[in-house]
Structure formats: C-alpha cells, structure tokens
Amino acid sequence: MTSSDSHVDIRGLHFSRGSRPIFAGVDIRIRRGLITAILGPSGTGKTTLLKLIGGQLRPDAGSVHVDGRDLAAMNRTELYAARARMGMLFQSGALFTDLSVYENVAFPLRAHTRLPESMLRDLVLMKLNAVGLRGARDLMPSELSGGMARRVALARAIALDPDLVMYDEPFAGQDPIAMGVLVKLIKTLNESVGVTSVIVSHDVPETLSIADYIYVISNAKVIGEGTPQQVMDSGSAEVRQFMRGEPDGPVPFHYPAAGYREDLLHG
C-alpha cells in the first residue's frame, strides 16, 4: 500500500434523509490509485455516499473534498468540470434506453469535448474493446443482457478517462461468468491506468479479492476499516459477523418478539 495521498477526503459527514440519519459522523479517505471498498448491509446509504462524492447531494454537516477541493464550495461550472474527471457505474447500468450502445458511450464525449467524429469513433471503439463489446456497438440497450449492459455502462463511465471511478454494487445479482468479467475489468483498469476505484457493495468474497482498503459501514457509522486481512481479523463482533456472513450475532436473527412458548400457547 504505497500511495498515501487522498483522492477523496470525507470528514465528519452527517447526512439524513427526512428524519432517518444515513451518516452520523463518518470519516473516509479514498487513497489515490487504490481500490477502496465500502461494505455494509443493504440500505445503509452506500449509493448515497457515491452521490455525495459526485456532488449530486450536499452533506448536512461535514465536508467532502475531491482532489483537495471542497465540493460544496464549487459553482456549477467547477462541478461540471469535476464530474468530467469522475466516472460512475450505476447498479443497473443506467444506459440511455433511446440510444444505441455506441451512442451511449459517445454521450460523455459529445457533452464535454468537441472532437471530430472520426476521433470520437476511435475513442468509443477503444473503450468498447476494453470491455469486450466492440462488436455490440449498434445494439440497443434493450437487446443486451444485464451483464453486457453493465459492461457498456463501464465503457461509458471511462469514456473521458477519469481519475476516479465509482462502482455501485457491481456484483449484485450477477452470474459467475459476468462477475468474473467485471472483477477482471476493475482490476485491469486500476492496475494499468492507476485509476482510483471506489466499490460500494455488500458482496464480501468478490470485494475482498480485489480491494486494497476496506471500510465497513453500519448504522450510519464506520464500524471497521483496514486492509482485507485486518478487517477479517477485526476485534469487533459486528464486523466479524458481517464479513463472515454469520446469520446471528450483533445483528440478531430473530425480529424482536414475545417469548416463543407464550406465543404458541396463547396464540
């Protein structure tokens, strides 16, 4: 773990949706050039975290610094420029259904650059080739399988060669082959280009296989962090239960109820 400077620095983050606190004082450092994973049970607001990093949401308190600059202090133009340096892969791919695969990948290029068509074409084909879908360029999103859609979405996310790529639950609901493909792509991107990667997931085994650093979030706080080995050997029972997938522990198996014997006898 060589790189130590922070690409994304989150300090004292507080964020609530309505009356429900999603983050109550969270500190996270995403180190440049490494793959950082954010793990935690479903519904703990991991997607919200990505949106906060992307500037789509504003923290109630605390700060989010990207590349040393506070997101909240940016105006529209600066935010726009910052987003050009980030790529995000949504859980469902989120391809634009009215555009072809080619046009989807070309979209960020058209939005941020004024490249001539020939150069644009080369770039799009390069990105599609990197994810292995160059031959699918004229298909429409509705004609793609889930796994293929995600790969196209990845190609789109890296179209502008961003420094930071965020993956929202990339492994959720994928068959083993698709999973293997994605893992390979994430690793390759990180190793070959040195892209900072943030993976948000609740899929422990896959994430452990590629993450350099892990944060475990539960109940609006960070309950554990470290290298994969450090987290697996964690002293915290909560962290251990989550990492090992134990059905019972600090998060109980039984929903709170009256005594079993009384229920059966008097029900």
């Binding site: 949504f90 989120a94 259904t97 979209f107 939005a111």
Partner: peptide
C-alpha cells in the same frame, strides 16, 4: 422510468 432506472442520475453524473 428514466428516473427509476437512474438514467437521470447518471446523466447528471456525466455532467449533462
């Protein structure tokens, strides 16, 4: 539908 499949969100993230 675009909203629920996060197309609007991803468009924002791309900066459009």
């Amino acid at each position: 539908l675009m909203k629920s499949t996060e197309q609007l969100s991803s468009m924002e993230m791309i900066g459009v």
